[in-house]
């Protein structure tokens, strides 16, 4: 039997949780789901699992990863789960690693496929998706997180049954607990949601050089990004960085200017539907992953594109 930790927002299971349910289905056997905290009961009615367990407790209003790990591990032992699966989001990964160490089990993070058997075979993501690892998981109770947006989500469905319970939570498991929340900065288009992203790499040459990148992004209602080389030079804040250790973007078009195309950067841009590279080097690695290219100096090309946009709008 498999147990899937399902996260929920506004009373509905998250997409990445439905992806985790889909991966768990590939393990065979019955799937149970666990939802924790306020809104869990509302979310439970649309979760396609044999049984949805809803953990309710006053102390669960704020995320407390040790409490989550305790509930998850306790339920897994109680129902005899042979696999525990969760989405590879920040909170769920955190709770799963804590559950793994409590249960004395290994954790395979960011898997994209599983093949049942003894040992269980998993394919997991390395280098933010630039490399895959096929591994054998030697345990009778496999803990697996699922790489976001790598697996097709399970179709919505109704649970076989819903069982609400009140877990026991030790005070020690509430030491690490969300105390406060800092809201996201207001205004502007976020990189994660932007339909157009224009980024500058080392080829921009200076912080001031970004004015041409900003101009084009503004004309297209898009967001400005940058590569890691730019951030590490102190030209732009890290919040602008696209890459494995920065933002993950998924725009309609990604315009990469003076960006060489290192794997670290591309790991953050894989979600882009189309990529246009502007680069003086027609042999740069970015050219082998871009759909379109302009070979030339971005300081000449970008102002020309902006001017052409203005001309057609006039």
């Amino acid at each position: 039997m498999n147990l899937v930790l399902v996260e929920h927002v506004d009373g509905a299971a998250t997409d990445v949780s439905l992806q985790a349910l889909a991966l768990a289905a590939g393990l065979g056997g019955e799937t149970h789901a666990l939802v924790i905290g306020p809104g869990g009961a509302a979310a439970s009615v649309n979760i396609p699992a044999a049984v949805v367990h809803v953990a309710e407790h006053d102390a669960l209003d704020a995320f407390a990863p040790d409490a989550w790990a305790s509930i998850l591990g306790g339920l897994a032992e109680q129902i005899g789960a042979t696999a525990i699966v969760a989405p590879g989001s920040g909170h769920a990964t955190d709770a799963m690693a804590r559950a793994a160490v409590r249960l004395g089990e290994p954790l395979a993070a960011n898997c994209i496929s599983v093949t049942p058997g003894d040992p269980l075979l998993v394919t997991r993501v390395r280098w933010g998706g630039s490399l895959l690892e096929e591994a054998r998981l030697h345990t009778g109770r496999a803990l697996i997180t699922v790489a976001p947006h790598a697996v097709v989500a399970a179709p919505a469905g109704s649970p076989g049954s819903v069982e609400t319970f009140t877990p026991e939570i030790a005070d020690a498991d509430l030491v690490v607990r969300v105390r406060d929340r800092v809201a996201p900065p207001a205004g502007g288009v976020s990189l994660a949601d932007a339909k157009v992203v224009v980024t500058g790499g080392r080829g921009v040459g200076s912080p001031e050089g970004f004015v041409v990148v900003e101009e084009l992004a503004a004309l297209l209602g898009g967001a400005v990004g940058c590569s890691r080389a730019v951030t590490m030079s102190g030209w732009r804040p890290h919040t602008d960085q696209v890459g494995q250790t920065g933002n993950k973007i998924a725009p309609e078009i990604y315009i990469a200017c003076g960006v060489s195309g290192a794997t670290q950067h591309i790991a953050g841009a894989k979600g882009a539907k189309k990529i246009l590279a502007v680069n003086t080097d027609s042999e740069a690695p970015i050219m082998s992953i871009a759909d379109y290219a302009v070979v030339g100096d971005l300081h000449e090309v970008l102002p020309a594109i902006s001017a052409e946009l203005r001309r057609r709008r006039a």
Partner: peptide, 18 residues
């Protein structure tokens, strides 16, 4: 493994980009 479609060279590519 893509071969990017080259829209042009330098500022002359602007019309094709738009």
């Amino acid at each position: 493994s893509k071969q990017a479609e080259v829209l042009g060279r330098g500022p002359d590519a602007a019309a094709a980009v738009v």
